Amino acid sequence: MVDDNDDDAELFRSAVGPVRRIQAPAPPPTAPRPRPRAGMAERDDAAAREAFRHALDASLLEAGDALVYRSERLSPRAWQRLRRGEIAAQDELDLHGAGVREGEALLRAFIHDAHHRGLGCVRVIHGKGLHAGECVASSGVPVLKNLVDRLLRQRADVVAFHSAPASQGGTGAVLVLLAPPKRR
């Protein structure tokens, strides 16, 4: 018995002639690699936030206490000028009415932005915590004031800070000296 399929296949091959295999099409392009992130900086920032949340201890500031911090990088002359309020604030952030999480996010963004804009001195108004419900802990301590103190101490771009003179807000505001931005 003769198979018609064999005859058809033979007839087709003789009609087409010799064939060569074609190359497989190139695979579609892959998605571009993501831009590199500053992973260490992100982890350091997360670790600092976590340390801040767990660092509440007996050294909490009261409403009338001054915020004071000075890095070794700051000269005694510049420190005196900051304490006297002789350095003009180039920008200001008012945290009145902000909750703790919102205040923390606003302060981080404000300091980061001010540092990258090359500002030398900024003022942060945190209030004294005398008339606020959410801004005062059950122990009577001003929450935003302590938040500002602890957060500013952890930042590498903060050289020094001191409570503002009475004419600029007294112990309800703080003048912050920022390090100059690094040249790229």
Score class of each variant (00 low, 15 high):
residue 6 D to E: 11
residue 3 D to I: 03
residue 155 R to L: 15
residue 183 R to D: 11
residue 172 G to I: 05
residue 94 D to R: 06
residue 160 A to T: 06
residue 112 H to D: 15
residue 151 L to C: 09
residue 94 D to L: 07
residue 168 Q to W: 01
residue 88 A to Q: 11
residue 34 P to T: 11
residue 152 L to A: 03
residue 77 R to I: 08
residue 43 R to S: 06
residue 94 D to F: 03
residue 164 A to I: 02
residue 109 A to E: 14
residue 27 P to A: 15
residue 177 L to W: 05
residue 85 G to Q: 03
residue 168 Q to S: 15
residue 40 M to W: 08
residue 31 A to P: 08
residue 103 G to H: 01
residue 108 R to C: 01
residue 76 P to Q: 09
residue 111 I to G: 00
residue 172 G to K: 08
residue 157 D to F: 06
residue 129 G to V: 03
residue 96 H to F: 05
residue 172 G to W: 06
residue 49 R to G: 15
residue 104 E to I: 00
residue 138 S to N: 07
residue 141 V to C: 02
residue 55 A to C: 08
residue 114 A to M: 01
residue 154 Q to N: 05
residue 40 M to K: 11
residue 11 L to W: 11
residue 22 I to W: 09
residue 44 D to F: 06
residue 177 L to G: 08
residue 105 A to K: 01
residue 23 Q to S: 13
residue 92 E to Q: 11
residue 36 P to C: 03
residue 38 A to M: 09
residue 100 V to R: 09
residue 65 D to C: 06
residue 129 G to H: 02
residue 36 P to L: 09
residue 142 P to N: 02
residue 162 H to V: 11
residue 77 R to T: 12
residue 159 V to K: 01
residue 20 R to D: 06
residue 88 A to C: 04
residue 111 I to N: 00
residue 133 G to T: 13
residue 174 V to G: 07
residue 149 D to F: 14
residue 126 H to P: 02
residue 183 R to I: 12
residue 122 V to I: 10
residue 62 E to N: 12
residue 110 F to V: 01
residue 2 V to H: 09
residue 22 I to D: 10
residue 39 G to I: 11
residue 172 G to T: 07
residue 70 R to E: 14
residue 173 A to S: 15
residue 38 A to R: 14
residue 57 D to I: 03
residue 141 V to W: 08
residue 111 I to H: 00
residue 95 L to C: 03
residue 166 A to H: 10
residue 100 V to A: 08
residue 149 D to R: 13
residue 129 G to L: 04
residue 175 L to A: 13
residue 122 V to G: 09
residue 163 S to M: 04
residue 142 P to R: 02
residue 157 D to P: 02
residue 148 V to W: 04
residue 23 Q to N: 10
residue 75 S to C: 03
residue 73 R to E: 14
residue 21 R to I: 13
residue 50 E to G: 03
residue 57 D to M: 05
residue 64 G to C: 10
residue 124 V to C: 05
residue 99 G to C: 02
residue 76 P to A: 14
residue 6 D to F: 05
residue 127 G to N: 04
residue 145 K to H: 03
residue 183 R to H: 10
residue 117 R to N: 04
residue 89 A to Y: 10
